[in-house]
Design a protein around this nucleic acid. Structure first.
Ligand SMILES: [Mn+2]
Ligand SMILES: [Mn+2]
Ligand SMILES: [Mn+2]
Ligand SMILES: [Mn+2]
Lengths: 146, 146
DNA sequence: TCCAATTTGTAGCCTAGGCAAACTTTGATG
DNA sequence: CATCAAAGTTTGCCTAGGCTACAAATTGGA
């Protein structure tokens, strides 16, 4: 047969549909990356610290963690800190690499690092592979900053 | 007095808070731009066309238009087409200019125009003024494509 | 040890933004 | 000018992701 019935996920042609899909996975990616950062930095990820970093209330974190648990991305026991599953770690790793690249790209473009950090947090979820690759190439082609 | 009590809107320092704010205004911007496009192209903006363009059902458009009406950005009477208020037109104009710049930037970066169109639809809502200006400068500095 | 501050959980509320199903209005056409 | 298909509305439902208020558990310090 030509053209397999199911490839991977049918990339939508409609830009607005794509944006909605991007947003559906956004919060998970940001949470997972943050949880890994907290474990790295302070030894564990507590809801209170996640809440402070995300700028939301703890109860909002609790509900989000519940969804991540449901989706098999974290493990969490009551009154205990939060851990990533293998799948969660994979997503966190990719999210971090992507974030790093977008940040580097914006800085290479001449944007102040503080502003770049803020904008990267939103932009990073809306990049097709070709756009991401173009950003990587741009960074490489940049002459090292003096 | 030094530092006025209220400036304009207190730009948040927390990237995640900024992203949430960006998303809160996103749908309005995209709808308004689209409505103006439809009026330009076909003489009027009908819910059925908005729905097709956005990739949602008509009832979803109806509800969204209700929010835009509530916020003073459109006028709409039952079973009639939709019009922008002056405020709605302003937002649409800015959104279109911004969209155009982001698209041009991605193409200048070497991204295929079709892909650029898709990615621009998400990226455009997450740009600080300095990043936007950096994109404009990059476009200008680009040698004209042969 | 114990107790009070911190942290987490629970209950209940809200808005945005999606959907399907059924009903109503409009307007083109015979 | 009656009909009927297309368009729009209404109703009711859902999930995500916010919030407050209050209850319960944990834990470090006296
Ligand atoms: Mn992000
Ligand atoms: Mn976004
Ligand atoms: Mn958009
Ligand atoms: Mn747009």
């Amino acid at each position: 047969m030509s053209s397999p019935t199911h490839s991977k996920k049918e990339t939508p042609i409609n830009p607005f549909v794509r944006v909605r899909e991007d947003h559906a996975t956004e919060l998970a990616e940001d949470y997972l990356e943050l949880i890994e950062d907290l474990i790295e930095q302070s030894g564990e990820a507590r809801a209170v610290d996640i809440a402070a970093a995300m700028g939301v209330r703890q109860v909002t974190v609790t509900k989000a963690i519940g969804r991540l648990k449901r989706d098999g991305l974290v493990t969490a026991a009551p009154y205990r800190s939060i851990f990533l599953t293998d799948q969660g770690k994979q997503i966190a790793k990719r999210a971090r690499a992507r974030h790093h690249t977008v940040l580097g790209f914006l800085v290479a473009l001449g944007v102040d690092p503080e502003v770049a950090e803020i904008d990267a947090e939103g932009i990073e979820h809306h990049l097709s592979p070709p756009t991401f690759i173009a950003m990587q190439k741009f960074i490489e082609q940049q002459p090292a900053v003096a």
